[in-house]
Design a protein around this nucleic acid. Structure first.
Lengths: 343, 343
DNA sequence: ATTAGCACTCGATGAGTGAGAGTGCTATTA
DNA sequence: TAATAGCACTCTCACTCATCGAGTGCTAAT
């Protein structure tokens, strides 16, 4: 594409991102100082429209970027925004906070991201497929209730109360605990299967219901985590003029409430360091007039989880991309620390 | 108030609750069959307006109930709705679910309430002031990390990872554990103060940072809980015509996101079995055009917690009150079971 | 190749209008 | 004396119409 056409496209998108209103040739000529008259710009715009980079809501309105236009912008024109030091510090602080609970950590990440971007933040809990069980503990509450606590190598802690039919003694419990520890600690969590547990418990002739419940519980622990989704700043959508329509809002919110869909969105981004998905590229019906920036973070070179930002297609890509790249990077280096000893 | 006036007021409110539109004299005469002509009804309405029970958005619109009108309705006219058996069953099922985790339990309560009412559900976690510590457990994760698990007599379970400066041995840990157990189990949680803990730990000459952290953590455990707030069905607000205005929505949502305000709302209801708060009676700015039905539930005759419904002043009081009364009652009888042995 | 000029298009705005809903008042009726 | 019928009045809502202005596309001139 010729240089000047790029400049015009860039101007249109930059302006539209800020003002959310169709951009006319005069406005481009005035504000972006390309050294040519509006008429020339009009010609360029006419070409750009023919090629599908911009659209006209109606004759005699200005032009609006199309999905294709945004795509070209993100791939070729966009300049990353230099983040201001105060924001960088804020990110570092939040990530450095000693939150050994992954839930709380993810939640505060989401809140931070949404506060910094004014969009909606998405996060998927780090995948557990590679993590191992690092400890398991059974605590007797009373004769009928046992609290099971599980620690994963990623620092996740889960507990669950399970109930048994017949009273259980301390001795029995520590037996079971030892058995579980011997057989399960160090195992990859995704390898702890129903079958494995059943075999283990069968050997020990445990009471039927107890066994069932323990299995049930462990299954929950291993499965739940992979699918846990966090969001933040959902209400930020309200400030975006594109969602001033109640119907659109409803659609959006009901989408965000469906964890499965959010997960699909985050997963659709693959395992590159950073992915930008624009409008129609979205894999989920109902998100077609949104854009998304997803960053993956890595532990030991392996994808550990995803964080993302969801906003209108008129997203401030430059800023958001810079920010998410930075956060993902910081996250990659912060996360392993959570499981090792500090200092 | 004369019988017929009551009937007219009742008709207006009933109609307005359903249709959300000003009610005219003709509509009242037609639908509610009082045996008099619209003209007569107009006279009654004129009186009702003079006395402040209803209002006119403008001349030649119908009448709309005022806060005073709703108040009179709730106190004198309203008929509780008979709940259908399917709904009752649903409530019982949700409450009977074996969720020994209070968080999850409260969350599912909120979801149930919002699903049944189509309004927003609020819940405050049971107050911990009367509950006692029933167990405390320390789990060594590695030399520098200790997982603390606390069980309250109400069935609440909390865990927190704490980190220590210098390595700690199993022996030391079980020492501390025993000491804590001996001194704290059975104590009312609100009596476990910073000072008490400091004294305890001082006796044992524990490492300074460890002590600090343990204290910090226990403080969190004792305080956090009292302030925990749950909400559900916030998006239901979107379907209420009174919130079709984006500005109102924003206000509402930013109110709901402030836990302190929600807590204030719930607490304002006092400790009666059930309280209805209407419009201007709301203690929190920004909730003035909402109404709220709060029910308290009780354990051993003591107020244990609150659940509430927040909606427009045009709330279906009859239905909501019946439902909340029922849920609170079920909750009162379900809750203690969670801590005792079943069967 | 660029630009100035100009006619044209289309949405937004605001005034004007008629229909409809609902009231309040008054005279009449039971 | 209470209830009612009738009627004028008020106010909103939806619709139409004219106007305005932003912005374009085209053409002719530079």
């Amino acid at each position: 594409m010729e240089e000047r056409k790029k400049q015009v496209l860039n101007a249109i998108i930059t302006d539209y991102i800020v003002n959310a209103e169709p951009v006319g040739s005069r406005a481009v000529a005035k504000k972006y100082d390309l050294g040519v008259s509006p008429a020339t710009i009009r010609n360029e715009m006419s070409d750009l429209e023919e090629e599908g980079y911009i659209e006209q809501p109606h004759t005699s309105a200005g032009r609006v970027p199309s999905a294709k236009g945004y795509r070209y912008y993100v791939d070729n024109l966009m300049e990353r925004e230099v983040l201001n030091p105060a924001q960088l510090m804020q990110v570092k602080e939040v990530l450095a906070a000693e939150t050994s609970e992954i839930d709380e950590f993810m939640r505060s990440c989401c809140n931070m991201i949404s506060a910094l971007t004014n969009y909606t933040a998405l996060a998927a809990i780090p995948e557990q497929s590679r993590s191992t069980l690092s400890n398991i503990q059974l605590v007797q509450v009373n004769a009928y209730q046992v609290l099971v606590i599980m620690l994963a190598s990623t620092g996740i802690i889960r507990h669950k109360m399970i109930e048994v039919d017949a009273p259980i003694t301390e001795d029995e419990l520590s037996h079971i605990e030892q058995m579980l520890r011997q057989n399960l600690i160090g195992k990859e969590i995704k390898h702890i299967s129903y079958e494995l547990l059943r075999d283990l418990l069968a050997d020990y002739h445990l009471r039927e219901r107890m066994a069932k419940q323990a299995l049930n519980m462990l299954e929950h622990l291993t499965n739940d985590e992979e699918h846990k989704i966090f969001t933040g700043g959902v209400m930020n959508m309200l400030s975006q003029p594109e969602f001033h329509d109640i119907e659109k809002l409803k659609n959006m919110f009901s989408l965000i409430e469906e964890e499965a869909k959010i997960e699909e969105l985050l997963n659709s981004a693959g395992s590159d360091r950073l992915t930008v998905t624009i409008g129609g590229e979205m894999p989920v019906e109902g998100a077609k007039d949104c854009s998304m920036v997803v960053a993956n973070y890595f532990v030991n070179g392996q994808k550990a989880g995803s964080i993302g930002v969801l906003g209108p297609t008129r997203l401030n890509y430059g800023r958001t991309v810079s920010l998410m790249e930075f956060i993902a990077e910081e996250l990659s280096s912060a996360l392993p620390d959570n499981n090792k000893n500090k200092k």
